[in-house]
Simulated scan of single mutants.
Amino acid sequence: MTFRNADLPGFTVGMVKCSRCNEIVRDSKEVVTPDGEVLCKNCANGSYYYKV
């Protein structure tokens, strides 16, 4: 099996901040839109929870 460094256990390889909600996204799990916006998966794909 081949793993990316970001998928191995241990220290965080990289961190970015979601441009919409400011959540910290670790280990290359961010979603980059075609216009270059960096988003967390919840902002990019929707979420299972909603604001009450």
Rank of each mutant, 00 (worst) to 15 (best):
K51Y: 07
N5F: 09
S19D: 11
D27L: 02
K17A: 08
N5M: 10
G36A: 05
V13I: 14
Y49V: 12
Y50N: 05
Y49M: 12
S19M: 11
T12K: 15
M15N: 11
T12F: 13
V31E: 01
S28R: 13
C40G: 03
G46C: 07
A6Y: 14
M15T: 15
F3V: 06
T12W: 11
N42V: 04
K51E: 09
Y49L: 08
K29D: 14
R26F: 11
L8G: 03
Y50S: 09
R20H: 08
C43M: 02
G10D: 08
G14P: 00
C43W: 01
V38P: 00
D27P: 00
R4G: 14
R4W: 05
P9T: 07
E37G: 00
K51G: 01
S19W: 01
V25S: 01
S47M: 06
Y48T: 14
I24M: 06
T12G: 06
V13T: 15
T12I: 15
S47A: 11
C40P: 02
R26I: 10
C21R: 02
V32I: 15
C18E: 01
K51W: 04
M1E: 10
Y49C: 05
R20Q: 11
T33Q: 13
S19L: 07
P34Y: 08
E30A: 13
A6M: 12
S19N: 09
P34F: 07
A44F: 01
G10V: 05
D27Q: 02
P34V: 04
C43G: 03
V13D: 09
V16G: 00
N45S: 04
K41N: 07
G10Y: 03
L39G: 00
C40I: 05
D7F: 06
V16H: 03
G14T: 14
V32N: 02
Y50C: 05
V32C: 05
C21Y: 04
V13M: 10
V52W: 01
N45K: 10
L39K: 00
M15A: 14
M1H: 12
Y48N: 08
C18A: 05
P9F: 08
G46R: 04
P9L: 09
M1I: 13
A44V: 03
N5S: 12
N45T: 07
D35Q: 11
K41I: 08
D7A: 12
E23F: 12
G36V: 03
C43H: 01
M1K: 08
V25F: 00
F3S: 06
K41E: 13
N22A: 13
K41R: 14
V16S: 05
D7C: 07
T12D: 14
N45Y: 15
N42F: 06
G10R: 06
T12V: 15
A44L: 06
C21S: 05
V52P: 12
K17Q: 12
V38N: 00
G14S: 15
I24P: 01
T12N: 13
T2K: 12
N42Y: 11
R26N: 13
Y49G: 10
K29E: 15
C18Q: 02
A44C: 05
A6Q: 14
S47L: 02
Y48A: 11
N5C: 05
N22S: 15
T2S: 11
E30C: 11
T33P: 01
A6H: 15
V32R: 13
V38F: 00
Y48M: 13
S19G: 08
C40T: 03
V16I: 10
N45D: 07
K17N: 09
N42G: 09
P34R: 08
M15D: 03
